[in-house]
């Protein structure tokens, strides 16, 4: 008995041309606290606003001068409208995969973070 080879599923043109990301990025201006370590080993904590986010990663501006592959922890306040007034936070962690300079006047760097699969809700 020889196994029949399954025909390769052709990639959707949509995936090929328009969106190669696995999950949709949502443009959410959410306040987030970012924690991590600077290249010199010092801990830092900074509050910023998320530009966009998906379960795969997030993109935001940061003043801290970190490097690629820095481990970061993001804590996002969940809007009270969703939690009926209860203070809940979403904690995510990941590593930096890309950094881009913003315009010359601002010191911030735009940071792209790839999440690992660990996340938790904090009350």
């Amino acid at each position: 008995m020889t196994k029949k080879k399954k025909p390769k599923k052709q990639k959707d043109i949509h995936d090929q041309l328009l969106n190669r990301r696995r999950e949709w990025r949502l443009d959410m201006p959410l306040k987030a606290e970012i924690k991590g370590k600077l290249p010199n080993g010092e801990n830092f904590s900074e509050t910023t606003t998320i530009d966009n986010i998906s379960s795969g990663g997030a993109y935001f501006g940061l003043n801290a001068r970190i490097t690629i592959d820095t481990k970061l922890n993001l804590t996002i306040d969940i809007p009270s409208k969703l939690t009926d007034g209860k203070k809940t936070k979403l904690s995510l962690s990941g590593s930096t995969v890309r950094m881009e300079k913003t315009d010359s006047k601002k010191k911030k760097l735009n940071i792209a973070v790839h999440f690992n699969k660990k996340y938790k809700f904090l009350d």
């Binding site: 986010i53 969940i78 809007p79 969703l82 979403l90």
Partner: peptide
Amino acid sequence: LALYAINSAL
């Protein structure tokens, strides 16, 4: 899904 829910509340 959680992010979709958060987005809808914003």
